[in-house]
Amino acid sequence: MLNINNLKASIGDKDILKGVSLSINKGEVHALMGPNGSGKSTLAYVLSGKDKYEVNEGTVDFKGKNLLNMNVEERANNGLFLAFQYPMEIPGVQTSFFLRTAINAKRKFNNLPELDALEFAKLLKLKAQELNINSDMLKRDLNVDYSGGEKKKQEILQLSMLNPDLAILDETDSGLDIDALRIVSEGVNKARNKENSFLVITHYQRLLNYIKPDFVHIIADGKIVKSGDYSLALELEDQGYEKMAKA
C-alpha cells in the first residue's frame, strides 16, 4: 500500500524528517508514537502534500504510484485521507454540502456518476448515526463553533464516507473525552477492512486500547527509532519516551 523510503523533509531551513522509512501493507493498522516535535504531524502533512513542507530526499510509493509527484487533491482522490489534528473552521460552508462536494469529487475522479441529493442524504444519515452525530450539526457551518469532540467526529464521518485506502489519523484522540474517544474509535474500527490501511498518530497508548494496531513505531528526532507490535506501546507507556528513544 504505502512504502516510505528514507524520507527527508524540512520547513524553511529547519530539517524535520531525517530519513523516515516505513512500509504499510493492505489491511494493516500502524501506530506512530513519539514525543512533541519528533516529526509525527510533519510526516502526516508531507504525505498529504501540504506545500509548506519541502521534501529533500527519499521516495514514497503509494499503490504503485509515486506519491510525491501528485498534488494534494490527486493524493486524496487516489485514496489517501488525513484526519486533521486541528480541523479547519470554514464559515459559510455547510458541513453536509462540504461532504457531498468531497464525495462527488472522488466519484467524478473514479468516473462514477455523482450522488444525487437523495442518495447522499441516505448515506449521510446512515454514517452519521454510527458516529452519534445529530443532523443539526450537519446543517451548521463546517466545524464552526463545533466542540473539540464534534470536530473530530466530523473528521471521522468524512473518513467513513470517503472510504479511503489509507487513512492517517493525526492525534485524533487529542481533545476528546472518554465517551467521544470510544465513539470515534468505534467509527474507525467500522471503517477497517482487509482492503484498507491506517496510520494512527498519537501520543498516548490509550487510543490504541480502542484501535488495536498491528504494528507500533516510535519516532524521535525525525527518524523511526523502534518498531514492534502492540506490546511496544505498553512498554512505552511504562517507561516514557526519553528512555525508549535512547535505547
Binding site: 498529504s48 502534500g49 501540504k50 506545500d51 498534488n71 494534494v72 487533491e73 493524493r75 486524496a76 482522490n77 485521507f81 488525513l82 486533521f84 480541523p87 479547519m88 470554514i90 462540504f98 462536494t101 468531497a102 469529487a105 472522488k106 475522479f109 468524512q158 470517503l162
Partner: peptide, 9 residues
C-alpha cells in the same frame, strides 16, 4: 488545503 485534502480541486 483542507478542500484539496478531501479531493476537491
Amino acid at each position: 488545503y483542507y478542500f484539496n485534502s478531501r479531493g476537491i480541486s
